[in-house]
Design a protein around this nucleic acid. Structure first.
Length: 476
RNA sequence: CGGGGUGUAGCGCAGCCCGGUUAGCGCACCUGCCUUGGGAGCAGGGGGUCGGAGGUUCGAAUCCUCUCACCCCGACCA
């Protein structure tokens, strides 16, 4: 089944692309490295936005919009920042048919433009904290791109906050990381490891970077969200000071945090199968499809009457699709809606009408079950909730089965080079050891996880003392 | 930027080595009939500056030169 989709075990990355193209989630645009997000894909993004936005508001944040174009001089103010981003920026040199006095960068992220504005807005401790988020597009000139995972232009949200103290900034950074973790697990049904990035993996200009990391079905790691404690680096670069209660002038403390359309790639690579997309119910704009089946007018009248009543009942709460197209046979429709990842399919034929039941199939289980007419609504509700839970649990089990505690270097090397999963190993904290592992095995330290207990050991690389394990894996 | 590959209908390809009817096939699309419990069938139909430029030749999708684009694999990244 599922023609046009390469099976996962044959070629995982081909499978990934096939699912996206066949499910009409996205398409290649005329410009290399950028993509068109089609309605099926964008519907998922809309639900990501709506639900995350709600969580941001609940934690006291407000939305704003800062412009796309950034003066070149701004980029140069924060040394680490410009070093980190300059090579991957698109730059506008002409406007109105003339060469510009000053080049304009298309934002790769908005720290600089935002901090130039915060300088104007922050005078006193009474102006703090500032808790602003924006939903925007950004451009990073990537060398190698992949649909949703890495495109030159992508959609994201970036939160930028300003605080009186270092403690408040740290608290905010972790609070938002937790929001991401909660969202990933409750909505995307993707189990994630929350932790801290090593110095070499942290954001250009940050003091600390925290992240959530997920395991994809090919056992590689994908960073699904980041939260940065920027300390006073941007405040100093943009001279953002405030007068404290005690009258003293101080630099503010900053954070920034973001997730992007990459989450859609994570969702695909976590749940989907060889039949196509699988969408967690909470992110399915259209969670149910009804497929009536009949072969003559007589049957049609009976089946449609039955189907319409069910449609009307479910429509009260769900955005149900009634697929009554007569030019396609049922088998075609089954395959098509499976490809699109619709969580629940209801089949209604003459035999079902007679027996006063329907056939219901959950996208993740693909098993047909008869459901009595009077319990359809509650069964849909129950199954959608259960599917949401099951997807997360299935992914969690998969991750645990492919995570290993490792205490010798050869074994680490064997596991990561064979792409067998995540390796929890001791690390002394030095960049040299991290670098060595990276060059020899291509695995990076994904994060220093929060939820692991401290444990005495020795660095897998140099043998020095270590008090916790970190996660090594090949990453996207 | 290195290594490899591909450009022929919307998509996927054959034809090219060895030049010669009106450039072909599958899918998709349109019309009609017929069908409907896992991607139906039949009949008819529309759609091409063969990536671009130049050259060789009586004649080029095919041979030669140049050029452009894209894809895959490696060095950067959410």
């Amino acid at each position: 089944m599922a023609k046009n989709i390469t099976p996962r075990n044959e070629d995982y990355s081909k499978w990934y692309t096939d699912v996206i193209i066949q499910a009409k989630m996205a398409d290649y645009s005329p410009v290399k490295g950028s993509m068109v997000i089609r309605p099926t894909g964008y519907a998922i993004w809309e639900l990501i936005q709506q639900n995350l936005d709600k969580m941001f508001k609940e934690t006291g944040h407000v939305n704003a919009y800062f412009p796309l174009l950034i003066p070149e001089s701004f980029m140069e103010k924060e040394a680490e920042h410009v070093e980190g981003f300059a090579p991957e920026c698109a730059v506008v040199t002409h406007g109105g048919g003339k060469k510009l006095e000053e080049n304009l960068y298309i934002r790769p992220t908005s720290e600089t433009i935002i901090w130039s504005m915060y300088k104007k807005w922050i005078m006193s401790y009474r102006d703090l904290p500032i808790l602003i988020n924006q939903w925007a597009n950004v451009i990073r000139w990537e060398m190698r791109t992949r649909l949703f995972l890495r495109t030159s232009e992508f959609l994201w949200q970036e939160g930028h906050t300003a605080h009186e103290t270092a403690e408040e900034a740290e608290e905010e950074t972790l609070k938002m990381l937790n929001v991401y973790k909660k969202f990933a697990e409750e909505y995307l049904a993707i189990p994630v490891i929350a932790g801290k990035k090593s110095d070499s993996e942290k954001f250009a200009g940050a003091v600390h970077t925290y992240c959530i990391e997920a395991m994809m079905q090919d056992k590689k790691a994908l960073q699904a969200g980041t939260s940065h404690n920027l300390g006073q680096n941007f405040a100093k670069a943009f001279d953002v000071q405030f007068q404290a209660k005690d009258g003293e002038r101080k630099f503010v403390y900053a954070t920034s945090w973001g997730v992007s359309t990459r989450l859609i790639g994570a969702l695909i690579m976590t749940h989907s199968d060889d039949n196509g997309l699988v969408i967690p119910p909470k992110l399915a704009q259209r969670p149910v499809v009804i497929i009536p089946i009949f072969k003559n007018d007589d049957e049609k009248v009976k089946v449609m009457a039955f189907a319409d009543s069910i449609f009307a009942e479910l429509k009260e709460e769900y955005n149900v699709i009634m697929d009554d197209r007569e030019k396609h046979k049922p088998g075609f429709k089954f395959a098509e809606w499976e490809l699109q990842g619709i969580p629940i399919r209801i089949e209604i034929g003459p035999k079902d009408v007679e027996k006063n039941h329907v056939v219901m199939v959950r996208r993740d289980l693909m098993k047909k079950e008869f459901i009595g007419r009077d319990v359809i609504f509650e069964t849909v509700k129950k199954q959608l909730a259960q599917m949401q839970v099951d997807l997360l649990e299935k992914a969690r089990i998969f991750r645990e089965e492919n995570s290993f505690n490792v205490d010798n270097y050869d074994e680490l090397k064997k596991i990561v080079t064979n792409e067998e999963g995540f390796v929890y190993a001791h690390w002394c904290g030095s960049t040299e050891c991290e670098e060595k592992v990276k060059t020899e095995t291509k695995a990076t330290i994904r994060c220093i996880p929060f939820d692991r207990e401290e444990e005495k050991g020795v660095c897998i690389c140099c043998g020095k003392d270590s008090d916790r394990r970190v996660v090594f894996a090949k990453a996207y």
